[in-house]
Design a binder for these strands. Structure first.
Length: 494
DNA sequence: TTTTGAGTTGTTCGA
DNA sequence: GTCGAACAACTCAAA
């Protein structure tokens, strides 16, 4: 750029790109549109823990957000538009900031939760009154939730027809490249707008620092996300349909936290998988299976958009009368991985250590909490919200309701996972359990999923005494199952 | 409007 | 050990 044209750019009024759930540079339509104005770009992140109704982030999400923002800040600085961090109610901060720096427009990627949409609508109105442009984009979903409807124009409530309708729309638009150049907006931000630094947001745990397991498991940020996708396509997609159910094999994509924070765009994921299948680098069936998993994420957002209180209210109102049981001792045993059922405990400890749990094990652990312990699904939803790095308002709520049977297209009441059978089926050698429940690691595969049935000689040679080295079962499986069936009887036909 | 086929992920029981 | 049926009836989506 010549000196003259640089001065010309400096004289131009800036635009703002407000980054929220699309913490990346590539395939970011909001960022791209801001760049294409040719005006200087001010990139901001607003840490909003003040707007009413916006659910506070869980601990694991806060850890991820810190590192994701750090990575985004580095990438943006390199691209020429350093990230500014602000703290406070977005509804006040964004319009005031735009007005004070003389911005002509604000760009952002859409969000789909009820309170988030309320905030965004209010801001759009405020900006409109100030004569400032407000431009929002879809950077999170394959299709907008309102674009996929039944023939009669209603939202879908069953996955399969939803997926069919989504598929009939064809491939999403190809992903956009990173903006070629961004011009820095040289503005000074008044402290009254809540200027902050990443560290001052206090997102990281300190006393105690429990994030060691997260650090060794994850690389937040756009590069880490793209590496995961590459690894998926090169190494995990072949055989994905079968292996994804095996917690001992690491057969899942592990993209969920990256997708949640928008470190990689859904359009890029879709197109790279489709292309790999077209080039016969991965089997068609495996690629289709993976795409259908993306469609579940899509379906969850569809449900959340049309049911903003999905995380707190039974989708099926008859569940309002369900006789949930409160038992803090048992819930605590579940949370800490001390139920006495190895596959459940392994999953809950994996979650505690890494901020993530294998999908199959999530179902087993959730089914156990809901059906064997008769705990209200919202208790489990809240625990996952706090401990998962991929905690997502749509996926978390829809999935818990699915297991409970209270959701859309939910599991039938009689589907009660037996943790012993599930363990034997999906962790046949017991390797997953051995990794996370080391105190029973010496048990042979034949007994590792049901230590209480092991003969005394086997327990002795594994140096294992139940009740001392590993908890006794907190509930009997047959009684738990019978209790669940009886409880579900009470709301039948309600 | 009415009808019809279908609906992610399981377990148990009895032949 | 294997296999099919039962476990409820209901709601959804589309013809």
């Amino acid at each position: 750029m010549t000196q003259a044209s640089k001065r010309a750019t400096d004289r131009q009024p800036p635009v703002i790109v407000w980054l929220r759930d699309a913490l990346r540079l590539a395939d970011n339509r909001a960022l791209n549109a801001a760049a294409e104005t040719g005006q200087p770009v001010l990139a901001i992140y607003v840490h909003d823990d003040a707007s009413p109704g916006v659910r506070p982030l869980g601990g694991a999400s806060r850890w991820w957000l810190h590192h994701s923002l750090a990575a985004l800040g580095r990438d943006l600085a390199e691209a020429g538009a350093p990230l500014k961090i602000l703290r406070g109610p977005a509804g006040r901060i964004v319009p005031e900031l735009a007005q004070q720096i003389g911005a002509t427009a604000v760009f952002w990627s859409r969000r789909y939760g009820g309170s988030e949409r309320a905030v965004d609508t209010a801001i759009k109105n405020s900006l409109g009154e100030l004569g400032i442009g407000a431009h929002s984009f879809n950077d999170f979903l394959l299709a907008e939730p309102w674009e996929v409807t039944t023939r009669s124009g209603d939202p879908f409530k069953v996955f399969t027809p939803f997926w069919r309708a989504l598929r009939e729309r064809g491939d999403p638009a190809p992903p956009l490249p990173k903006p070629r150049k961004l011009t820095t907006a040289h503005v000074s931000l008044p402290v009254s707008l809540g200027t902050a630094t990443l560290d001052s947001l206090d997102l990281l745990p300190t006393r105690p620092d429990w994030a060691g397991g997260l650090r060794e498991t994850w690389t937040p940020g756009e590069q880490g996300a793209r590496d995961r996708l590459t690894h998926l396509i090169r190494s995990r997609l072949d055989g994905y349909a079968a292996n994804r159910d095996r917690p001992d094999l690491a057969g899942t994509s592990c993209l969920s936290p990256h997708l949640h924070f928008g470190e990689i765009g859904i359009r890029e994921v879709w197109h790279r998988v489709v292309r790999a299948a077209a080039d016969r680098k991965v089997p068609h069936e495996d690629a289709q299976k993976f795409l259908s998993e993306l469609a579940w994420r899509e379906f969850s957002n569809h449900l959340l958009f049309h049911n903003p209180d999905l995380a707190t209210r039974n989708f099926q109102p008859r569940f309002d009368a369900f006789p949930w049981v409160s038992n803090r001792r048992r819930v605590r045993a579940w949370q800490r991985g001390k139920t006495g059922y190895p596959i459940v405990d392994a999953g809950m400890r994996e979650l505690w250590h890494t901020g993530w749990m294998h999908n199959r094990v999530r179902m087993i652990a959730a089914s156990f909490l809901i059906k064997h312990l008769l705990t209200d699904w919202r208790t489990g939803e809240a625990w996952f919200w706090d401990t998962l790095v991929d905690a997502d308002a749509a996926n978390n709520a829809a999935s818990w309701q699915w297991v409970a049977g209270s959701g859309a297209d939910a599991a039938p009441y009689f589907r009660i996972f037996n943790p012993v059978l599930q363990g034997r089926k999906f962790d046949p050698e017991g390797d997953y359990v051995r990794r996370w429940v080391p105190e029973i690691a010496k048990l042979p595969a034949a007994h590792i999923h049901a230590p209480w049935d092991a003969p005394p000689s086997v327990l002795a040679s594994a140096k294992l005494e139940l009740g001392r080295d590993y908890p006794e079962r907190i509930v009997d499986l047959d009684e738990g199952r019978a209790g669940a069936l009886a409880a579900f009887q009470t709301i039948k036909g309600a």
